[in-house]
Design a protein around this nucleic acid. Structure first.
Lengths: 233, 233
DNA sequence: TAATATTGACTAACCGGTCAGTCAATAATT
DNA sequence: AATTATTGACTGACCGGTTAGTCAATATTA
C-alpha cells in the first residue's frame, strides 16, 4: 500500500458503522459534491460555473461527478433540493412548536422567516439562484412553492383568520395576500443580495420596525392593550 | 473650395439627419444592438448569452458589435444603463408633478412605483438581471441605487416627515427604513419573476390591499392617540 | 482476485474576441 | 458630368482558450 488513507477515512473506520470506508465514501460523496457545487454556483452563477472547479473543491475530479450525477443540470437541481431541505424541515419543526396568542405567534413566525429569508446567507443565495434561473428550472420553483412558500402562506392565512376570530386582528382583505407579511423580509433579502456587504444593514432593527409597521396595520386598537414593537426578548 | 451642393446634400445639411443612410445607421445601430442584447440576456442570462445571437437578432454580425462596444461586459452594462434611463426619467417626471396631501401623494407615488417595479415587464427583468449579476457588476448596482433607489427612498422619507409634521401620519421609526413601503411592490415583482405566468396574480387588487395594509399602519387613528411605538433610539 | 470507486486524458463543440478585407456612399478631381 | 480616391460601417473566417461529457486505465478495498 503505497498511499496512506486520509485522516477522514481512518477516522471513519474506527467509528465502525456496519459499512466500510468505501461505502461510507460512496455515501458521502454526493453530499460533498453538492456542497462544493453550492459554493461555486453561488460565486459564479449557473452557466459560468465549471464542473471541474466543483470537483476540485469537493476533492475529486470531474469524472467522479458523473458517477453520481447525470449532468450539470442535475447537479444544480440536486444541490438546490439538498440545501433547501433543512429549511423545509425547520419550517416544519416551527409549525409543531406553535402556541400562544395570534399576535405573539405572528411575531415569532415572522422572526423565524426573517432569519430564513434574510439573515441566513445560504437561504439568501439559494433565493438568488432561484430568481436568476427561474426560467431555466421551473420545476425547482414549483417545488419550492409546494414545499415552502405554500405552507407558509397557508399558515399565515390561518393565523390571520384565527386572530380575526378572536378579535385580536382587524378583518381586512389581507387574507387574499397573506404573503404581504413576508414582503419586508423579502425586501431585506433583496437588499442584501444587491449590496453584498457594501451597505451594512441593522437587520435586528429592520425587523422590529417592519413588525411595528405590519402589526399596527393589523391589530385592532380599541384602546387598552398597546401593541408595542419593543424588544420582547 | 468650389463646393456644389447637390439636392441630397442640401437636404442633409438642412434637416441635419434625414440624408445619409450610412450615418443614420451608425446612429441607430447601438440602440438596436442593446435592444437585441436585452432580449437575449433576459432569455438566457449573462453568461449563457452568445454575442452572435445578439448580433443576429439585431440584424448584424458579431463583428459589428465590436465596432460599437468594447466587449461582452460593456454590452451588458450599456444595455442596463440604456433600459434603466426611461425609468429614471419617469421617476424624475413624477417628482415634478407632486402635490396634494401626504396620504394622497403616498398612494399615488406607491402606485407609480408599483407600475415600475412590478407591472412593467422590462423593469422586472432588468431587476432580475441586477440581482443575478450583482456580484459581477457592483458598479451597476451602485448606479441603480444612486439614480433610482436613493432618490425614491429620500422622497419617501421626506413625505413621511411632512405627513408627521401635519399630523396625518403617526410618528414612527419607519423613518429609518422608508424602503419598507416598497416591499409589497418588490414582493410582487419577485413573485412574477419566479412564476413567470404560471400563477396569475391580480396586481390591481394586490396593490389595493398592500396600500390598505401600509396606510392603516401609518395613518393616525382618529379614535385617539392610542400609542406611539416608543422607540426612542 | 474480484468488485468497485476514482482518475485524467481525450473529444467535440462552443464562444469571445480579432482583423484583413469588402463595398456602398461620399468627396475630390478633371 | 464623369472618373477616381477615400472613407468607414460592416463582414465573416479564424484563433485561442474553455468546458461538458466520455471512457479506458488505475487505485483501493474486501
Amino acid at each position: 500500500m503505497p498511499t496512506h488513507p486520509s485522516d477522514e477515512e481512518r477516522e471513519t473506520r474506527d467509528s465502525g458503522k456496519a459499512g466500510a470506508v468505501r461505502t461510507r465514501r460512496k455515501a458521502e460523496r454526493p453530499g460533498e459534491i453538492l456542497e462544493a457545487a453550492f459554493e461555486e454556483f453561488v460565486q459564479k452563477g449557473y452557466a459560468a460555473t465549471r464542473l471541474e472547479d466543483v470537483a476540485a473543491r469537493a476533492g475529486v475530479t470531474k469524472g467522479t461527478i458523473y458517477v453520481y450525477f447525470e449532468n450539470k443540470e442535475q447537479v444544480f437541481v440536486a444541490m438546490v433540493r439538498e440545501l433547501s431541505r433543512p429549511v423545509h424541515v425547520q419550517a416544519e419543526e416551527f409549525a409543531e412548536s406553535s402556541a400562544s396568542s395570534t399576535a405573539e405567534f405572528l411575531r415569532a413566525y415572522l422572526c423565524f422567516l426573517y432569519r430564513i429569508l434574510a439573515t441566513d446567507p445560504r437561504g439568501r443565495e439559494i433565493f438568488r439562484l432561484l430568481i436568476a434561473e427561474a426560467n431555466r428550472f421551473p420545476e425547482l420553483i414549483d417545488e419550492h412553492h409546494q414545499n415552502f412558500m405554500g405552507p407558509v402562506v397557508r399558515r399565515l392565512r390561518q393565523s390571520l383568520e384565527d386572530g380575526a376570530e378572536r378579535g385580536e386582528i382587524r378583518r381586512s382583505s389581507i387574507l387574499e395576500f397573506p404573503e404581504l407579511l413576508l414582503s419586508p423580509a423579502l425586501s431585506l433579502n433583496i437588499s442584501m443580495l444587491l449590496f453584498s456587504d457594501r451597505r451594512p444593514i441593522d437587520m435586528e432593527r429592520h425587523f422590529e420596525i417592519a413588525v411595528d409597521l405590519l402589526l399596527n396595520g393589523l391589530l385592532q386598537r380599541p384602546a387598552g392593550k398597546a401593541d408595542q414593537p419593543g424588544q420582547s426578548s
